[in-house]
Amino acid sequence: MKRRVLPGFGLSLGYVMAWLGLIVLLPLAALVFKSSALAPSGWWALLSSPRTLAALRLSFGGAMLAAAVNVLAGLLVAWVLVRHRFPGRRLFDALVDLPFALPTAVAGIALTAIYAPEGWLGRYLVPMGIKVAYAPLGVVVAMVFVGFPFVVRTLQPVLESMEREVEEAAASLGATRWQVFFRVVLPLLLPTLLTGFGLALARAVGEYGSVIFIAGNIPRLSEITPLLIVEKLEEFNYAGAAALGVAMLVLSLLLLLLVSLVQRASRRWELPR
């Protein structure tokens, strides 16, 4: 066997496996085990019911929309924070983390207060026909809020370490500013953007606390999947709740896998090393 340069591979790998097993795999195994109490017909009835389908559509569709919004807004914010120097920059930088720190229920209440028909923004939006609070749009707004820091925080270190010489070289070779951005900077950032997208997506799919305050929770319209799980638990239907959890888990895994596949494909633009 070839000797490795770094010591302790066997031991550290053992720790990694034990830790991942304890923290991640064990709870997930318990979830799958609980859901196995449900017969195949029960699974089918649960997953094919219009209510479940609508909730899954809102949870995953809303999360993808929110993650996409966060990628665009996050790119802009990270760019400004890294590339420009202006008074208050550090303050803005610190503000980015706020959605991490705030209990999500507080965020939900605050967002609802703002977008409710009599709220600060709601009183102008609702007469224009834009209903945010107590509508599916509110779900997306809450998801954007909780997912926002992920994109900014994954982009910042990459932007900081990006060599400006590359951009300067492109410019000196006659590229316009838009060409530099779209053909040089963006391809370099794409894998990181996708990482941020995946993180924001995962965060939004699992979000419960803030969403239930603003959603209105009307079945088939503004009801997210985690709420359906809570309903099942409320009637002591552990198997049904676990089954919905497994369904969410599988869908999330598939989505994250897809994101990482796209990411791998996007790496072909990376500079050869």
């Binding site: 009599e118 107590y134 239930i212 305050f213 209105g216 929770n217 009307i218 079945p219 709420l227």
Partner: peptide, 20 residues
Amino acid sequence: VPVLDTGARGATNTFAQRGI
């Protein structure tokens, strides 16, 4: 019924604080 809160206090807040 335009909003279904998950708990009784939540519903009271929706009615009293949000004006729904």
